[in-house]
Design a protein around this nucleic acid. Sequence first.
RNA 1: CGGGGCGUAGCGCAGCCAGGUAGCGCACUUGUAUGGGGUACAAGUGGUCGGAGGUUCAAAUCCUCUCGCCCCGACCA
Length: 567
Amino acid sequence: MRLSNLFGSTLREIPAEAQMTSHQLLLRAGMIRQVATGIYAYLPLGWRVLHKIEDILRDEMNAVGGQEMRMPSAQPAELWQETGRYSEAGPVLASFRDRAQRELVLGITHEEVVTYLARREIHSYRQLPFVVYQIQTKFRDEPRSRGGLIRAREFTMKDAYSFHVDQADLDGYYPRMYRAYESSFRRCGVEAVAVEANPGLMGGAASHEFMALNDGGEDTLILCDQCGYAANAESAVTRREEKPGDSERPLEEVATPGTTTIEDVASFLGITPRQTLKAIFYVAEGKLAFVVIRGDLEVNETKLASLLKVSDLRLAEQQEVEEAGIVAGYASPIDQAGKVKVVADESVNWGSNFVAGANKAGYHLCNVNHPRDFEVDVLGDIAAVQDGDPCLRCGGRLQAARGIELGHIFKLGTRYSELMGATFLDKAGQTRPLVMGCYGIGIGRLMAAVVEQCHDDHGIVWPLSVAPYHFHLIVLGDEAKIVDTAESLYHSLQSKGCEILYDDRNESAGVKFNDADLIGIPFRLTVGSRSLRAGGVEIKRRDAEEDEIVSLQGLEEKVPALVSRST
RNA sequence: CGGGGCGUAGCGCAGCCAGGUAGCGCACUUGUAUGGGGUACAAGUGGUCGGAGGUUCAAAUCCUCUCGCCCCGACCA
């Protein structure tokens, strides 16, 4: 490809809209352009990168038995009503009506469609197991997109679905996919860590997310560097400290004027937040919940939602709290039984003689003890794991880190097949639901993650495996000898199957070098009067400081070895 | 959906407070020189100032509404 003819140009300045490094560099290098919020066009260079990644994923999916196919992005709303996700998904599921007024949705994922297809095609255990996958465009009308390709509304996803006769077969297959994911990210040049995750809207028993460690990432991870425990903070657990408290003392009311936060109360009374109980109010599927947790801990809303078995959970408005007769800032779990649902974190049992609200403005109660003084309707682990907490497995120190979710794999089980009636006859002639797994990778996001991890001050440093081209050929000067050499090198390398971007523009050396650094192709070849005098072509790796001169002949002999490392 | 910010040439911005016929840098076009890290000089092209309405003799500037974009939060398959 001649740079003089390439559609899409580099930008000298950082577009004002871009905050994240990958977003800035992908825009500046002429890889992507935004068309609307969270909706991007891939320009030719970026499209080539996307293709390289797709091909790696295809290779990995094929290796674990995947069959590539393609499902539609426009899907009948009825399929989503069958599983209940039509309403569960909410506004992220964009929909429109066709000319016959039939409602269609834009697929945010494809469990419904693939299960619909399996229901039609699969009748016997003899057809199982099988794995299908596709590389396809999803549209999720996100409440907020951000970071360029990190969180887009329209994006390319590789989604795979496996179907099994029973859970044991799924359990046997799942680790193969897990390893294929590890391999996929490694081959793309991204360091990713697998963490235990919360299945969320997808449902199912187990899931793992593959996260690229990144300070700008959207998820918080909890990692143990001693035993390797790794989990999304949403579902992370920590070792409980079930230390017995002091002997229980009688309840005592104390005046604590103007102290509505845990910090205020603790410093007013000269105690630590650990000796207090705090109250937080949620509305879970329309009903107020009084949540109690030790004052030094935070509520993990994902854990709370799954403990309460609700999908809709939000913090209560002050007005809703007051209407329930609760005094905000001085709320007490005592005497709430029967009035409002009381949910407590296990930490209410990890100590004694706590300070809690008196449910009276300006007063707190000392020596509050569970269960002596208050009852709870639901007790469980709803505490957020914090940096420095002890690891559940080994007692080591857990560390919090930020990450970008690149992929997510799920053991779905029979959730979709049961709801949609996707069954088969087993050996004994029994009708049974298909057991499913699903496995997704956000490809654009993966591309952005590569850039997040592979760049320097000058631009992108593509790993060879996903680089848009292998060689970036620069010609300096317009003397016939120089141009002829560059041209013939361009043609001969191409004829050897090399992917080469040829900067044949009439630009100064500085402009060409800077663009080459920005675009980030692994090998830079320079032909100029200086290189010819030195005996040939200058070759420089994008990730190295030094360059070397090789003869034209020598270069052509060297090329196959350079490129063969691309996977 | 809540909070904050921004829309002026392809990109980055000034001008707005104190209304008076729109500017800078880069990019782009042409020419000359230059030719190994964003080269120099010269001459040019390009904007109904996001949109609509209002105030005014006069609106990029003041007022109202609206659309778009970014960031934080809520949300997140």
